[in-house]
Amino acid sequence: MTRAKTIPLPRPTALSRPHWDGCREGVLRVQRCAACGSYEFIPQAVCTRCQAGKLEWVESSGRGSVYSHTTVYRPPRPEFDAPYVVAIVELEEGWHMLTNLVDCTPEEVAIGLPVEVDFRAVSDEITLPCFRLRRST
């Protein structure tokens, strides 16, 4: 499951730049509402839970579990090497994000398995927050 460098890369916006800068620095950043404390991802201008508080960037532990997953066999573009695993990860703090699970086979993946962030640099600017299975050692 190697990634070709020609896949479409994120183009950070003013709103999302702290997230992508964090990934490059090896930190998973997410917004949290100063009023209700709920986590917000993808980046928003207003808290989607309470619509009241200011959203602040905080660090996530980068640990969570597989919430749902699918293995893609027919990629949307030829630049992607199929098969690859797309997952929704539920972070320890209770928020969700889309990602790829790397360094595992499709057969190994199941809902509920523990995972951790695995940053993969794909360009000078962009590092992708992939996830890998947390294997007991």
């Binding site: 950070p12 749902s68 990629p75 573009r77 797309v86 929704i88």
Partner: peptide, 26 residues
């Protein structure tokens, strides 16, 4: 029309079948 272009989905190789598959799997 199956290939959304967005900074939080496109890089993961997501497209409409995968988006709906994540719902179906759950």
């Amino acid at each position: 029309w199956t290939r959304p272009s967005n900074e939080f989905v496109e890089c993961w190789g997501l497209f409409t079948p995968a988006e709906f598959a994540l719902m179906a799997r759950r």
